[in-house]
Design a protein around this nucleic acid. Structure first.
Lengths: 123, 123
DNA sequence: TCGACACTTCCAAAGTTGTTGAAATATCGT
DNA sequence: ACGATATTTCAACAACTTTGGAAGTGTCGA
């Protein structure tokens, strides 16, 4: 992961429409959703949605597959793993004890029903 | 973490300057860096940097502390934990096996040479 | 082959963001 | 108190992003 790729991911997620698309597709894993249904769910004009889907696909955040007349989109969660790794690269310059939060970030994010985050005090 | 807060974080990291600031400050944890040194390290005009630092501080991504004439900035890595949690919320609709990537994201990110997994209860 | 459908591309208007330099504020050392 | 230093605020401007309608491409079913 290089800076340019990470920037593209953050640019994707910094629009309300695109963040909505990504969250919707994360929920819809591993099946995915076709473009028209995304447009309906988020109430976005088709041409506008198409613009956003293209941006996200180019950034690698979505994978797309043709199904007849439909295009089915799916979230690429693995890319988020890389992005977080990129952010925490070389963190704390090896100072012992300085990495408490980074450790939390790297090992403490439960998801998908196994458990849940939101633990912010440093105790 | 609500959508607005998450958007603010992604907006912060979607500018080259701000991403550079955050990565620099992640590396500089837990000491932090004063504004002038950030400007020098990244070769950004002071007024421009000030604009970005304010955006990031408002988003909660940075904490700032006055030291005489200087302002020392530090990264808030814990906020990233919340953001990743927000992204993977309700992922895969509980489909078994659908969460492979989200689990990877939540538990498989190496950082800082040590790992200290912390799994909490669901909310 | 045709018409209907799903989606994308093109274009111009509207809105948002980032940069700059100059002036303002606040703190320091003497 | 004064001048030097660190940083922020302000206003103007250029550059970029987002939007929606209309037209285009490709696929389906009869």
């Amino acid at each position: 992961m290089d800076e340019k790729a990470a920037l593209a991911v953050f640019e994707c997620l910094s629009s309300g429409v695109r963040l909505g698309v990504f969250r919707l597709l994360v929920k819809a894993e591993p099946v995915g959703i076709v473009a028209g249904d995304i447009a309906a769910a988020l109430d976005v004009a088709p041409s506008s949605l198409s613009f956003h889907l293209r941006t996200m696909t180019q950034a690698g955040l979505l994978r797309v597959e043709q199904e007849g007349r439909f295009l089915r989109y799916r979230a690429n969660l693995a890319l988020m793993t890389e992005v977080v790794g990129f952010l925490t690269e070389n963190c704390c310059s090896g100072v012992s004890g300085g990495c408490r939060d980074a450790d939390l970030l790297s090992g403490g994010i439960p998801a998908c029903g196994s458990s849940n985050p939101v633990r912010e005090s440093k105790a």
